[in-house]
Design a protein around this nucleic acid. Structure first.
Length: 263
DNA sequence: ATGGTCGACTCTCGA
């Protein structure tokens, strides 16, 4: 018997200040219980907290100048909020990883490093980041209890998750090494709820700005994900994307990805 | 091999 539904969404906003109207419109339309946001590109002092508070959502965020930045908006106040890893490595990751506990369910919001280019220090950092994340899950969560992991993972897990996969074998979001790193982190105990519900379906969440016709030609990537531990993944009823990026209400290259669970 | 487009912010970087 369904007690209540929980709707969670993730969106790489690429500047929360310039796309504030997009966030407000989407919250109004969908009224999710939780919205995870990445790339706010905004120091905390400049975060548009007043206007976002007018929605009634509870806001938690951590940003920095120019780059990165994560935020979680919740319909009910979270029980706990944490930022960054707790492994003594760079605190820049405070603006890339956060964890809130909402209605007893831990939700991790990540903006995984892009990786720049194969062979670069940034790529190495990205691969290590996935290893640190797996350890973080092991320290704070249990695969047998409900938990959610959402965000911009900067990985297309399988060939079906990117247009022309044969052209991207050396891309930092599709190379065998990064896909393996992602799989190993996932195998700690998370299930990709979109792929779980729709094993054969192709759905993209990102269309590269650097290729202006990518949306028209549907040359996209599925690099934003919602994952759940097994007991919660079994209760996932629907997953979809919303809003055509680059059209309304303001150009973007990611779109909203959302999932609904019977809890 | 290169450039294309955004956004933040400083005349350049990151994606």
């Amino acid at each position: 018997m369904v007690q209540f539904a929980m709707k969670i969404a993730t969106y790489n906003v690429n500047s929360i200040r310039i796309r504030l109207d997009v966030i407000l419109a989407w919250l109004e339309k969908h009224q999710p219980d939780v919205l995870c946001i990445q790339e706010t590109k905004c120091q905390d002092e400049l975060f548009p907290a007043l206007i976002l508070s007018s929605t009634g959502y509870h806001l938690h965020y951590r940003g920095m100048k120019s780059y990165n930045g994560v935020a979680v908006l919740t319909r009910v106040a979270p029980d706990e909020v944490f930022y960054g890893f707790d492994d003594q490595l760079p605190e820049i990751d405070d603006a890339r990883l956060m964890r809130v506990v909402v209605s007893g369910i831990p939700v991790i919001n990540t903006y995984v490093p892009n990786g720049f280019k194969l062979g670069s220090p940034q790529y190495k950092y990205k691969l290590q980041w996935y290893g640190r994340l797996r350890n973080y899950f092991a320290r704070h969560l249990s695969p047998d209890r409900p938990a959610l992991w959402c965000g911009d993972m900067n990985v297309a897990p399988e060939p079906i998750d990117v247009h022309s996969p044969e052209k991207h074998l050396r891309h930092v979001c599709f190379h065998e090494d990064v896909r393996r790193a992602y799989r190993q982190t996932l195998s700690w105990g998370f299930v990709d709820v979109f792929r779980h519900l729709y094993p054969e379906k192709q759905l993209f969440t990102f269309w590269d700005y650097l290729r202006p016709s990518s949306l028209e030609k549907n040359k996209g990537w599925r690099i934003d994900h919602i994952l759940a531990t097994r007991p919660l993944a079994e209760k996932c009823r629907q997953v979809d994307v919303d809003i055509e990026p680059r059209r309304a209400p303001r150009a973007s290259d990611h779109t909203f990805l959302w999932a609904e669970f019977d809890v």
